[in-house]
């Protein structure tokens, strides 16, 4: 008699239960995938912070507009810089009066008292004290630059908060993943106990218990990887949907197209592998736990 294939033994033994269980796991993977994708795109608080954090190079009054634009173009070429935009004295005045309405009289008497400036935003993935210092060091020696504003005393505080926020996000993701693994282990244990008689029958007829466990783990890994892939795809679709509907999504999370960036793809592959490994591990742990409880 040929040994029946034990790759899908659980499916053969109880397809209904396994279907329900897999649907549940899909939901969990969807949540985890969405969380992961959001973290990958946003870098935690980096995306939002880099959108808000600006380094201002205040130019001298004598600097003409063309020269200001040239400086902005040069600054844009720095590796850590996401964008650098020249703002004319008129734009500076508009921003100022928008922030402090009622001060028009200051200009009425003696012309525009504000100079032009260059507004610099760092790349979200390079937002750090070192990057800020490098931009400051590049701008400060320029004779056209009167002053470089980098946030002053707030800069280290905000960057510290950013680190904490990122840690919290990733910790949350880790906890969620751990919780899901725990759930998977319980599911595997329960299923193993449910089919314990069947597994014992097979063992008595010469089927290796160890091999059976490994084959079940491999099947679980494949299932986990598949579910992770589906969930990532669904999460990406969700991101595109949210980005289209909510403008703040791009500000807080980032443009969904960045999923195609090499760094993001690597992370997604890691996510898939991790999902497969953890699913297999949960199967093995559940198997062993079921055997221990039967003795």
């Amino acid at each position: 008699m040929s040994v029946p294939s034990s790759w899908w033994i659980d499916w053969k033994l109880s397809p209904g239960a396994l279907t329900r269980e897999t649907a549940g796991r899909l939901v969990l993977f969807l949540l985890l995938g969405l969380f992961f994708l959001a973290l990958v795109l946003s870098g935690g608080g980096n995306r939002f912070l880099s959108g808000q954090w600006t380094i201002t190079a205040v130019l001298r009054f004598s600097v003409p507009e063309a020269e200001g634009r040239g400086i902005a173009a040069k600054v844009s070429g720095l590796a850590v810089v996401g964008s650098a935009v020249y703002k004319s004295p008129e734009e500076a005045w508009k921003e100022f009066t928008a922030a402090y309405p009622g001060l028009d009289s200051l200009r009425a008497a003696g012309g525009n008292p504000l100079p032009g400036y260059v507004e610099i935003r760092l790349r979200p993935d390079r937002l750090s004290e070192k990057a800020v210092a490098s931009v400051d060091a590049a701008l400060r020696p320029l004779p056209q630059v009167e002053e470089v504003l980098t946030g002053g005393k707030w800069a280290p505080r905000i960057l510290r908060v950013k680190r904490w926020v990122n840690a919290v996000f990733w910790a949350g993701f880790g906890l969620l993943g751990a919780a899901f693994v725990a759930i998977f282990i319980v599911q595997e244990k329960v299923r193993t106990l449910l089919h314990a008689a069947d597994f014992a029958f097979l063992t008595e007829r010469g089927v290796s218990s160890r091999g059976m466990a490994l084959r079940r783990a491999a099947a679980a890994s494949l299932c986990g990887a598949g579910l992770a892939l589906v969930s990532i795809g669904a999460a990406a679709g969700t991101c595109f949907l949210l980005d289209a509907r909510y403008s703040f999504f791009r500000t807080v999370v980032g443009p969904p197209l960045e999923i195609m960036a090499p760094d993001a793809i690597v992370l997604l592959v890691v996510f898939l592998i991790a999902a497969a490994l953890l699913s297999g591990a949960a199967s093995l742990i559940g198997w062993r736990a079921a055997l221990s409880s039967r003795r």
């Binding site: 201002t56 001060l103 008292p113 504003l149 800069a155």
Partner: peptide, 13 residues
């Protein structure tokens, strides 16, 4: 950082 810039502008003005 914007507040800092606006404060700077206010000081200049």
């Amino acid at each position: 950082t914007r507040e800092e810039r606006l404060r700077r502008f206010a000081r200049l003005a």
